[in-house]
Nucleic acid binder design. Structure first.
Length: 362
DNA sequence: AAGACGGGGAT
DNA sequence: ATCCCAGTCTT
């Protein structure tokens, strides 16, 4: 784009954003703490999904200091169902660092933002530009799509070469003094009109600048990348009841998949195994307890990004302990059904709690 | 450079 | 069923 075209493009896009932007809670005051939390929640997560989580979080933890001082279980409960739970744990780690090293205020320096856990190139730029109006570029999935279409860039946008071109454009096009609104306008355009499928070019504020529209390549740009097919996994899961009618739940390791969340004890299955037998054995090894597998409860299918799991859930009864080890040593504890809501569970296990609650009512 | 990391919305 | 989403971190 020539400087004259760029200027007109900026003006038309900003005018559109001023008129048509969605009213979002983190856009009310551009308070740095709110911008930070929203940006972390919005990583790989759509706005509509984030909204109720954001409101609950800000109500429960209205300041960075409150985040630093609360328990990790509280953090994970607020994040329950949102996914990518490392984000939640990293927010707390960062909050503690901010309180210790930055006087409780989010740093404005780009390098210091980047040094905080959970904040990478995109989020550091987003906080710098949206909260502090610094002229820092950002490139997310929306902006990749918008810029590739504007420029009719047909190569794989994930390649190192294309990434460089995209980031360069995102930086070069920022209008002086207006990074806050310009960066958001590019994303807003991608989120609301310049969508992956069925983009609404008739409503686009900048169609005359769009080379893909002119070349009729909108549907092919940006180039799509193939993902390998999801692998299948089979799991056996035990809902174990003790004499008092309490249920056994276990806390997952702090790191890794759904780290720190609670779950019903379960084991992965090989093909062609006796499910009930394997479950009994697996629970004995994991928890040092003997159980009886009484009856099937439900079969739950759940899809993750890279694999699909079928959960074969069984109602079981605790018989006796196999050793002197305590439940705490296994990061497990007995909890009445009505208290399960205090713990954070992966979505698939939340489905089980739903089923148990319904059975209890019946 | 590639894989792990969740869950839901849209088609 | 498949793709995608206001990405980051590890290997």
């Amino acid at each position: 784009m020539t400087p004259t075209e760029l200027s007109l493009f900026q003006i038309q896009l900003l005018e559109w954003f001023t008129q048509q932007q969605r009213p979002l809670p983190w856009r009310q005051h551009y308070e740095p703490y709110a911008v930070w939390i929203s940006e972390i929640m919005l990583q790989q997560t759509q706005v509509a999904t984030v909204l109720p989580y954001f409101d609950r979080w800000m109500e429960m933890l209205p300041s960075i200091q409150a985040v630093a001082e609360t328990s990790e279980d509280t953090i994970l409960k607020l994040w329950e169902g949102l996914g990518y739970y490392t984000r939640a744990r990293n927010i707390q780690k960062a909050a503690i660092m901010i309180c210790e090293k930055h006087g409780g205020q989010i740093p404005q320096d780009f390098s210091e933002l980047l040094a905080l856990p959970g904040i990478g190139r995109y989020t550091a730029g987003a906080i710098a530009s949206i909260a502090f109006n610094q002229e820092r570029p950002i490139v997310d999935g929306n902006i990749v799509r918008v810029l590739c279409r504007l420029m009719d860039w047909r190569d794989n946008p994930r390649s190192a070469e294309m990434q460089k071109k995209i980031w360069n454009a995102a930086e070069a096009w920022i209008p002086e003094g207006n990074a806050r609104f310009f960066n958001q306008a590019l994303m807003e355009l991608g989120a609301t009109l310049c969508s992956t499928q069925a983009p609404l070019c008739l409503l686009c504020p900048v169609p005359s600048f769009c080379k893909a529209l002119k070349a009729n390549t909108i549907d092919a740009v940006p180039a799509k990348t193939k993902r390998p097919p999801a692998k299948q996994r089979i799991t056996a899961l035990a809902v174990i009841q003790n004499e008092e009618g309490e249920l056994l739940i276990a806390k997952r390791p702090a790191e890794g998949l759904m780290g720190g969340l609670w779950e019903f004890p379960n084991i992965n299955l090989d093909k062609d195994t006796d499910i009930e037998q394997a479950l009994k054995q697996g629970i004995r090894q994991q928890q040092d307890i003997l159980i009886t597998v009484d009856q099937p409860l439900s079969i739950i299918k759940h899809a993750y990004t890279s694999f699909k799991v079928t959960l074969h859930c069984f109602l079981c009864t605790y018989q006796r302990s196999e050793s002197d080890s305590t439940r705490e040593e296994h990061s497990a504890q007995w909890v009445p059904l009505e208290n399960l809501k205090q713990f954070s569970f992966p979505a698939a296990h939340g489905k089980i709690i739903q089923i148990l609650s319904q059975e209890r009512m019946a």
